[in-house]
Amino acid sequence: MTRLNFLCDTDRCIECNACATSCKNEHEVPWGMVRRRVVTINDGEPGERSVAISCMHCTDAPCVAVCPVSTLYQTDLGIVLHDKDTCIGCGYCFYACPFGAPQFPRSTLFGTRGTMDKCTYCAGGPEENGSEEEFQKYGRNRIAEGKLPICAEVCSTRALLAGEADTISDIYRERVIARGFGSGAWGWKTAYYPDQDT
């Protein structure tokens, strides 16, 4: 069945950080938090590659399973959303996340982390879609507008792909065949197919 995924083509990512920057701007993400970031592996060595990562909106999402106050929930498109009104800032989702997606406004002492923030796949939160209240808490709701996440749509090399899973798989596969090489879909096993053996 259909769902929306993220895929980062590490043979194209040039670590420009436009995804991270445009995300912060689109959603007015508070100071000290970042919903998307770029990780560079083997920096300065042969085989160096960069990969952009945010919440992957996992299948059988571990953050949803561990949340003690049911702040986190998933939609039929696979998108994992959160409700800032019920979050207690316990940090369970942070420990359960394979990709370090949940962020807290304060990393200060005595557990005063504040309420969690994470990538929404540009799909807002439980408030009415496109409302001012939703924007204040979760940022823009591009999915409700029929658009896809800004990080992928802004990507200048089209390294970062977002959208319907089979479609982005096809785009990536044809690309790999055309150029003759590709390092595969990073993080997909952990994020989307946790219980299927490879």
């Binding site: 990780v39 592996i41 990969v51 990562i53 571990p62 399973a65 561990v66 420990y95 359960a96 996340c97 394979p98 990709f99 370090g100 990073w186 993080g187 952990t190 946790p194």
Partner: peptide
């Protein structure tokens, strides 16, 4: 980037 242990933690 990735930490599969998180799923075991869950």
């Amino acid at each position: 980037f990735e930490r599969p242990f998180a799923r075991d933690w869950r």
